[in-house]
Amino acid sequence: MERLIRKGAEADIYLGELFGRKAILKIRKPKPYRQPDLDSGIRKRRTLHEASFLVDARKAGVSTPLVYFIDPDKAEIVMQYIKGKRLKEIISDSKQSDIDTLYSEVGRSIAKLHKDSIIHGDLTTSNFLVIKNDVLVFIDFGLAFSSQRLEDKAVDLHLMKEALTSAHSKVADKAFSKILEGYSEVAGVKMVKDLVKKVREIERRGRYTRVE
């Protein structure tokens, strides 16, 4: 009945039907290489987080798939099927100027989440779906958590930047500055300034400076 449409790092995504509508079944399958207690804890926790933050994000004004059903013990979520392309594919297929507005929208949406204390935790270009080139849908909230700390928001932006510089190096700088522009429309210029400073600080930390 269900058809496997994507084998992600964390979960397998199946396309099926629920009450005559197309629906997505997302299963976080056990990982045999992980210690069993650790594995089941991670899968259950992330399933619950994902379901609740998909709902919270909507309240914050960001589009996400509707959650139909969850089973934390099996680490399964059934949610709305969204017909769209991943941002990653759109970037590879487009010219920079064509999608400038999309980057600003990414920034505005991240700012809306942050304003409501939602940290996405996994901002990469695979975790946005784009419908008809302009509507943005956030997915994959398994690593999301609630926080108002500047540090956590900055790590979120650092992850976005890292995804851009690694996978889309040619457009990364321009794209990231557009994202920040969008972010400042919602959160203000001062906030963005503070965040950029923090992002730099975070980026310096993990680097060969302190071997004790």
């Binding site: 650790l38 935790g121 996994d122 901002l123 690593l143 992850l159």
Partner: peptide
Amino acid sequence: PYTVKGND
């Protein structure tokens, strides 16, 4: 503590 943030 198990701490993964994106790919970090």
